[in-house]
Each structure stands twice: as C-alpha cells, then as structure tokens.
Write a protein that binds this DNA or RNA. Structure first.
Length: 131
RNA sequence: UUAGCAAACAAUUCUGUCGCUCCGAAAUGGAGAGGAAAGUCCGGGCAACAUAGAGCAUCUUGCUUCCUAACAGGAAGGAUUCGUUUCAAACGGAGACAGCCAGUGCCACAGAAAAUAAACCGUCACGAUGUGAAAUACAUCGGGAUAAGGGUGAAAACGUGAGGUAAGAGCUCACGGCAUCAUAAGGUGACUUAUGUUGCGGUAAACCUCAAGAGUUGAAAGACCAAAUAAACCUCGAUUACUGAGUUGCUCGCUCAAAUUAUUCGACAAAAAGUCGAUUAAUAUCGAGGAGGGUAGGUCGUUUGAGCCCGAUAGCAAUGUCGGUGCCUAGAUAAAUGACAGAAUCCAUUCACAUGGAUACAGAACCCGGCUUACACGUUUGCUUUUAUA
RNA sequence: GCGUUCGUAGUUCAAUGGAUAGAAUAUCAGAUUUCGGCUCUGAGGGUUGGGGGUUCGAGUCCCUCCGAGCGCA
C-alpha cells in the first residue's frame, strides 16, 4: 500500500479551520506538525494529511513545488510501516498538517529523517491522551 | 589567438521499477509544464449587464502605405539625427516623428533686455549754459533719435557683404539658411524637385488644438443541479380582509371572543420600573427591492483552436490563399510531472583510470496575438579588444 | 485572475520643473550639573527604490524593471 490518493489528503476548509483553531502541535526541524483527533471527519481514510510550504520562506514557485514533492514522496514511502501499523485504534480519525519552516531547500535525506522521527513522535503523542 | 558586448538558434535523450493527475468499461493501454508558463504593459475572443440618436467630460494613440480578428505589435518606405569610411556618396544604428502662423502659460540665476521688444553703458545730431580770440573744439545739462558694439546665458530677435543714414536698422539689394502657403512635375502616400509669395526665439513627455479610437465589468464572468436556512425583519406596489369559536352541506358574508405589539388616558406607587383597567390601530397572500442569515458541494463554461505539420502559390517583406484518405499535442481545482536504478551525450577535476554533476532563468490555472524583463553550457554572425606572426 | 495606491536622512513627514533636497525626532560632540535627566549650541547622516528618455535643468514629466500595501469571492 504505497499509494497516496486524494482521499488521504486534507482538502476540506472546515476541517483545516478546526485543525488550526484547536489542534495540538510540536516542532521538529524543519517542520511544524499540527494534528487533531476528530471522529466527525467523513472520509474512508483514517488519516488525512496537508503539506504547506509558505511563500514567505521560499519566494519562487519552483522551489516550493520541489520541497512539497519531496515531503509527499517521503510520506508516501513510510506511512504504511510507521503510521498505519502503529495506530492504537482502528476507528480513529486524524488530521495532520506539515508546515515547512526551514530556510532554503533541504536535501531529500534531511527531510526523510525528520518525517520518520515525526511519525514516531506523533504515535507517542496519540497514545498518551487515549490512556 | 585572448577577453567582452549585441543579435539569432537551442533549451539533453532513451529504458525499467514504485507512485501522482486526466482519458478509458477495463487492460500488461494512452497522454502529462515553458521559451519565456513570469511581469500583467497592450490588443482580441468569450460571458453578463447597459444601450433610439447625438453631444459634453474622461482616457488612449499620433510621419506614410500595407499586414492583421485587433493592437501602443510587425513589414516596407520617407524625412530627421548619430557613428564610421570618405567628403559625390555609401554602410550601420536610433527615436512618442501631428500642430507654438488658433489661444493661454512658463523660460530660475546671470544679463541692458527672456518676448506687444527694451534705452543701463555706448553712438548720433539738435537746444541751453560755461571755458575759449574763434571754430566743424572741450565740458555739463535737457528733451529726443538709434538696435551697429557691450566679460551674461541653455537660448539674444536669421547669417555675410554692399547700399543707405545725423547715427543706425531686412529699411533696401545680392548671396545663403530655415519655415508657412500657392502653382507645376514625379510618387498610392509620407515626401522630393523647381518657381513664386509671406515670414524668421524655445517649450505641447506645459495647458491645449486637430484627427482617429474607446459602453462597463472580468472565468472569483456566467448557466444549471443538490444541500441548507426562515413559514422571520424593513420599505414599496397590487390583491384582499385576517387568529379561534358559532351559524351553513361548502364558500362569501354575519355575530362573539382572546392574544401580541404600539399610541393615548386613568388608577396604584415618593420617583422610576412595573401592575391593572379603558380607548384607537395593526396582524393575510403575491411580486420587487433592502438589510441580515445560511451554504463553502458538484456539473458545464474548460481546452478542437484567429490550432499544429507538410507542400504549392501571390507578395520586396510582414502576411495571405489553396490542397492534404496528414496530426490531436497538459487540463489540475488548496491544485497532478516525483523518487530510485541503468545507458548514451555534454560539462568540471585528473596524465589516465575514475569520481562528481546535468545545472541557467524559471512551474500551466478560461483561451489566443504581441510587447517587456530574466537566462548556464554550446553553435553562428557582427563590433571592440589582448597576444603572436608576416 | 482583475483593479488600485505608494516608495525621499535611522524613523515620521515636507518640497510649483530652478541654486548645495528641508523640518521634527533619533545619533554624536560641546555647554550646563557632584553625576544623570531636562534645557541650550553645533555637527554628521541622502544612489530621492534601480535603469533609460524628454528638457538648458528632473525628487517632480514619460517609459521600463524591482519592492510594498489595499480592494473584489
């Protein structure tokens, strides 16, 4: 299951507003990760993800596209083993946003390491409030 | 041969694995960023609204002819101007290149004067007074004439010579410069040449005049479907007469009663708030507009088009016309092109093996035609330049 | 996607096409004070966002590029 279809991406404006209004977050360079557990999300996928690269950090559209594509590619390759297999409850619905806060273009390896770490930290944060 | 500048071309290719978006019933199927996709500086298509016609205002354009759907774009040409060679002319480049003989305004400082010319110095004769033997001499004063000369300035009343005059002056004449107008010849035309006439500061990227053009708003336009809210509020118009009960087979009509809101009056109360009673008015439906609230989904518009390729043909060219069993070549909607591996080609380092990299500028958002700006390596052309040789 | 406004000293703002771009405040130096503040005197600080054009002359007029803001769902 290495696919990454539309239903796994976060598109609804209402959910995005809710996420930034009442979601919890943590930093892990070069990302700020914001997430919320909300059972009202109507989607088949347990997790919906949003990738953001702000225009303030990277002025050129080409650079923003490159960073977004690297983030998507890393997420696609590692989500199955690190996220989906480690979920505490099968019926849980989670919305996540990855906000890029680095200056300049980070290498593929740097992004790969950071996203891997962030996934395991996310799972730890999820299991705490459930208990 | 070294380096730089400008212009043009070009903008790596192929295969596999795992993914993404679209097409497709599905497949081991097919398609998938640019020369500028950028800036949004112009022009058009398309859509909605407005619109009898004309004028004013505002904005834009401004040598000519042609091309084009259209343009502030392009092609060819004209005059002007700059550079080079050369002084006949040739080659290359540049520009918003209509009109200050319609009117108004402005021209700092300096300078006598910056625009109906003007009299500060100077020049000139005349008059008066004085000096003097006297004079056509000298000095002072007066009201005049004059535009030749005057360390200015970006710019000084067209330039040179002669005549003329008291001194002078385009005042007159000759030659020359520029411009308006008229006529003739050539050219589709801008314009050129010749003759005559009139005239001689600059500035329109100052207001303005003339000619030509422009309705406004932009795909967040607009059309449809679904969902949601309110059967509510305010204003206007039309139709009508209301909520409940009774009467009637039913409707209209008639009778009775209650509620809410507002107006006025009275009672209770120190006052206010409030309570009670009486009186008058309103309460509905449809349509239009306003303000506010709700929704935050989908389909179309939307990618077959002023389209691309090849050939013929008209034209100096921009470009047009005709033909083809020719081709279909991104279409997302918080937004798709990525990662890995291999090969060819190119670049950097190195004697080589080999290692590293494929990069510059930069990412479609309704679609086209231009313009402008950015751009690594490489190739070609032109100009400047370094070194070497002759 | 479309429209629109702006860019001047470190900061906030002026300047009709005309001499070396001005004011307040901030900075620095001096005076005053035992010291500091307040006050007084003086000084420095400008690619008028970049480039080109029109003009005798441009912060101002025109073109182009860069940057910033605002509005339209």
């Amino acid at each position: 299951m290495l696919s990454f279809k539309k239903k796994e991406r976060l598109c609804s404006k209402k959910v995005i507003d809710l996420l930034y209004k009442s979601g919890s977050s943590f930093f892990l360079y070069p990302f700020k990760i914001q997430f919320i557990i909300n059972p009202t999300i109507t989607s088949n996928s347990p997790i919906q993800v949003l990738f953001i690269v702000p225009k303030k950090r990277l002025k050129k559209a080409v650079d923003r596209n490159l960073v977004k594509r690297r983030m998507r590619e890393v997420y696609r390759c590692h989500k199955q083993t690190l996220l989906y297999a480690a979920l505490p409850d099968s019926n849980i619905k989670i919305a996540i946003s990855y906000l890029y806060v680095g200056n300049g273009i980070e290498s593929f390896e740097q992004i790969e390491n950071s996203i891997k770490k962030s996934m395991s930290q996310l799972i730890r944060n999820l299991s705490k409030p459930v208990q």
